[in-house]
Amino acid sequence: MSVPGPVLPSEVDLTTSLAGVSLPNPVLTASGCAAAGRELDQFFDVADLGAVVTKSIMLDPRSGRPTPRMAETPSGMLNSIGLQGPGIDGFLASDLPWLLRRRARPVVSIAGSTLGEYAELARRLGNTPGVTAVEVNISCPNLENRGLVFACDRHQAARVISAVRRDTPRGVPVLAKLSPDVTNIVDIAESVVDAGADGLVMINTLLGISIDPETMRPVLGGVTGGLSGPAIRPVAVRCVWQVHQAMPDVPIVGVGGIRTGADALEFMLAGASAVQVGTVIFNDPSAPTRVLEELRVELAARSFKAAREAVGFAHRGDVPR
């Protein structure tokens, strides 16, 4: 418990532990909103962040979906990119070495269409030094199970995590990124933790559709898209809250609509030990480091001497400060 009294922002200890890996601060980029860091490095030093979470890497190169790929929505957006990317070979040849040269901490997000693809990706990454953690994007259609999304089925989700954990070196945490589009997120969370997930990332986008009243047709080329941005923040905070309450010892990375340091603090109070800044980067490419500096000020203003003291604080309503 922090002792009440003035704390200067510069005195706040921002270090955090992410499933056993220590990070200099709890602010990360969100997968799919920072590519592999290179473009954002024009606006701030990517090594200043706790970690850079890459866009989800698949086994093979991927063209992604036809345009239009995005629709602006109130305080958010829908995207339907379809995981366009270079595939694991291109990533390992170009993007990962660049991140390591820049002394950034890479959290590599992986995505697959089959269990075997996830396992193969884990093996490829497991043989590569320098990966801070693996984030598993399980919000993908399972081609071996009628295209149902892995993240929406506790058994399929667990099978993926178990396969990735088996082929990932011990010192590299495996983080499961969960979808909010489920009946009971605690149920899925427990299932992937039992399967070996070292931490949870919550939340991925919510499925949405936008229809153009002029054309009277769906806006997105892919019809459905993932909803992100500040509009989904309360849903994300709720998921973090529920899972932290059920499993207080499981590390959680909070993500969903973080725009300011106060938003980041909200996730930490709900139980997140780290946070990711995503869609807001499109609005403000400097957002990740801005949020970090604002978080420092918010913590100091509440006399937190260390960021980790704030984790889960909102659950302790009965404890006087």
């Binding site: 590519a35 473009e39 606006f43 995207n79």
Partner: peptide
């Protein structure tokens, strides 16, 4: 969406 190369839209 972004203009800087990260959103892929």
């Amino acid at each position: 969406a972004c203009g800087i190369g990260v959103c892929m839209t």
